[in-house]
C-alpha cells in the first residue's frame, strides 16, 4: 500500500515537473521573442533617426508645422 502511494506521488511529481518545465519554457520563449522584437524595433527606429536625424524639426512654437511624415 505504502509502495503504491509512493509510486503515485512520484508520478505526480513528474507530471508537476513537466508542467512547470513546459510553462517555464513558454515564458522564456516569450521573453526571447520580446527581446528580439525590441532589437528589431530599435534598429528600425535608429535607421529612421539616422535618415531624418540631421533635418531640423520645425517647432510649432516657431510658427511652423511639424514635418507631416513624422507625425504620429
Amino acid at each position: 500500500m505504502k509502495k503504491s502511494v509512493n509510486s503515485i506521488s512520484k508520478i505526480m511529481d513528474l507530471f508537476l515537473w513537466v508542467k512547470v518545465r513546459d510553462g517555464f519554457a513558454l515564458v522564456m520563449a516569450a521573453v526571447a521573442l520580446a527581446v528580439i522584437l525590441t532589437v528589431i524595433f530599435t534598429a528600425v527606429e535608429l535607421k529612421k533617426y539616422r535618415r531624418d536625424g540631421d533635418a531640423e524639426i520645425t517647432s510649432p512654437d516657431d510658427g511652423g508645422m511639424p514635418d507631416s511624415d513624422n507625425t504620429d
Binding site: 515564458v27 516569450a30 521573453v31 520580446a34 522584437l37 525590441t38 524595433f41
Partner: peptide, 13 residues
C-alpha cells in the same frame, strides 16, 4: 517579472 517587465519595450514601441 518576466511577463510584466520584458514586453514593455515592444508594448512601448
Amino acid at each position: 517579472d518576466a511577463l510584466a517587465f520584458v514586453p514593455q519595450a515592444v508594448v512601448g514601441y
